[in-house]
């Protein structure tokens, strides 16, 4: 499988001099197409910084972030914004849906910003809403939807137009456990369909949907669960 996201020796220091805080210290992580990686760690361990650097919303102090073969550090501000709209989808705990726009308009907005025509963008939005199971709510406004439905709209916006890297930061925040699980199933399905996913969470139950769980502490990657057992790896264990 090809790497969609490659993070190499990533260090991020916030502030300068005495007040400098090192959020990440030389983190290396590769996420391939079809793979979902969960990042866990206590508050202040650097997990959200890792995610914002991965999506080009924050700039590393040193090290590189490569998305679909493009080194984000080599891009101009404008090119970076274009790559973010085209290749990267975000799901945050705060949904950031625009209340004055319908579900379909919220989802099609990034496509229209990227230059798609209205009709084309709406068609893509409807496909994404269909994928998250709420095609029938396309013309509703966020305020007329439940929390779970709003979260689905936010996910549809993150995956619209077949973006290959999906980054999620505590995406199940305020949802009850069953609704939260539906969100994880959607992310899982998206990765099974070929996207690369990175999920930041403090909930072990949600991290468990990932193929790999990595643990951060004080900006360092301290452990990971490794890839899932396969028939071959189990046999290998027996032979040894």
């Amino acid at each position: 499988m090809s790497a969609v996201l490659e993070i190499a020796d990533l260090t991020r220091v916030h502030g300068k001099g005495e007040a400098a805080v090192t959020a990440l210290r030389g983190v290396t992580l590769t996420v391939t197409a079809g793979e979902m990686v969960a990042v866990m760690g206590p508050s202040g361990s650097g997990k959200s910084t890792l995610l914002t650097c991965a999506g080009g919303l924050d700039t590393p102090t040193s090290g590189t972030v490569t998305v679909e073969g493009t080194d984000l550090g080599s891009l101009s501000r404008k090119q970076l914004a274009a790559l973010r709209r085209r290749s990267v989808g975000y799901i945050f705990q705060e949904l950031n849906l625009i209340p004055a726009l319908t579900a379909a308009e919220n989802v099609s907005l990034p496509r229209e910003l990227d230059g798609d025509g209205h009709r084309e963008a709406r068609a893509l939005a409807l496909v994404a809403l269909e994928e998250v199971g709420i095609a029938e709510l396309a013309d509703r406004f966020p305020d007329d939807m439940s929390g779970g439905q709003q979260q689905r709209v936010a996910i549809a916006r993150a995956i619209v137009g077949d973006r290959r890297l999906v980054l999620a930061d505590e995406p199940t925040g305020a949802l009850d456990t069953d609704t939260g699980e539906q969100v994880l199933r959607l992310l899982r399905a998206r990765c099974d369909a070929g996207a690369a996913g990175v999920l930041v969470t403090h909930e072990a139950r949600h991290a468990a949907w990932a193929d790999r769980v990595v643990f951060l502490r004080d900006g360092l990657m301290v452990d990971e669960t490794g890839p899932a057992a396969t028939a071959d790896s189990l046999l290998h264990g027996i032979r040894r």
């Binding site: 468990a208 769980v213 643990f215 301290v222 452990d223």
Partner: peptide
């Protein structure tokens, strides 16, 4: 603590795959 956490998450991943 970390060794246990990694092991328990592996078990949790297995249960979740069965659930999926």
């Amino acid at each position: 603590v970390q060794a246990q956490r990694t092991a328990t998450l592996r078990a949790l991943q297995d249960y979740t795959r069965l659930k999926a």
